[in-house]
């Protein structure tokens, strides 16, 4: 069981390079976060993994077999995308039936339960739904489809706070009950951060962080204190961002600190959360260098 192995994926549209050289592995039974700003290449990557578009180079393998044009492999993947591929004239119930027909074993009871919770009338046509309810409908399918790997691209688009809360609950609950693998692609990190076990951070078509959340955060520090001392203490370290207020500076460091250096009394070392780390890794200043 190797799960999904993405190898050396490259993709350009017209002349713009979207994905430069993507390598990653998705192991079964985890919740992954694919984090990146808008336009970083998240959706393109997910579309390539699920065979919706083609990469220029590279391969996607599931348990040792290529995913490309492979019904059996594709039947284990489900991508809930921002783009709506369901036909507008279909009733929601019919779309459940189609999912059942083509994926098999659709969990109708759970779908009905979720529809009640989200107050979604299943006798409506897909085209009549608002953006938020289209998202809800697609989330319901994602949670009830028997695919082993579920990819959620911007899963809370258009949802209000209550519905987002409801979704995160059900996501974790569904994950515990079914052991499915979820890959959540989003630029809204705060709410989902604690649910993730492993993160990929993508910037400009490249994976810049790939690791378990705990391990990644272990190396993410906020060094704060007077400008001069902080500059001295962080010199040569991987500083990914800074904030200054008057004479006080906070420097975000991603990577090992230098244990040889003595920490001045005036300087404090704190940990960063995922949101902060992400913002600093992917902001415009980080892109310079």
């Amino acid at each position: 069981m190797d799960g999904i192995i993405v190898k050396e994926i490259k993709k350009s549209f017209n002349k713009a390079t979207i994905l430069k050289n993507i390598d990653l592995q998705i192991k079964p039974g985890k919740i992954y976060g694919l984090l990146g700003r808008n336009g970083a290449g998240k959706s393109t990557l997910l579309s390539i993994i699920t065979n919706r578009i083609f990469s220029d180079e590279g391969t996607v393998m599931l348990d040792g077999n290529t995913v490309f044009e492979n019904d059996e492999a594709l039947g284990q993947l489900y991508l809930m995308s921002e783009r709506n591929l369901y036909s507008n004239s279909s009733k929601l119930r019919q779309l459940f039936n189609t999912t059942e027909l083509l994926y098999g074993n659709f969990d109708y009871n759970y779908a009905q339960k979720l529809a009640n919770m989200f107050e979604l009338d299943l006798n409506q046509k897909f085209g009549k739904l608002s953006t938020g309810y289209r998202t809800i409908f697609k989330l319901i399918v994602s949670l009830c489809v028997p695919a082993k790997y579920v990819f959620l691209d911007e899963p809370v688009l258009g949802l209000d706070a209550n519905h987002r809360e409801l979704f995160y609950r059900e996501l974790v609950d569904n994950y515990v009950k079914t052991g499915k693998t979820f890959v959540i692609s989003t630029h809204l990190i705060e709410e989902v951060a604690n649910s993730l076990e492993h993160v990929f951070v993508i910037r400009d078509g490249q994976i810049i962080v790939d690791g378990d959340v705990d391990d990644v955060l272990e190396k993410a520090y906020l060094i704060a204190g007077p400008v001069k001392e902080v500059e001295q203490y962080t010199a040569g370290l991987n500083v990914i961002g800074q904030e200054t207020l008057g004479n006080i500076q906070g420097s975000y460091v991603f990577g090992e600190l230098d244990s040889e250096r003595i920490l001045p009394d005036t300087v404090t070392v704190e940990k960063m959360d995922l949101q902060k780390l992400f913002i600093n890794l992917t902001n415009a200043r980080g892109e310079k260098k």
Binding site: E69, S87, Y103
Partner: peptide, 16 residues
């Protein structure tokens, strides 16, 4: 195209 859309959403290859 409309058939293709719904089929690819449901994990069906182009060949199939």
């Amino acid at each position: 195209y409309s058939d293709f859309k719904i089929l690819i959403q449901n994990g069906i290859s182009r060949r199939t």
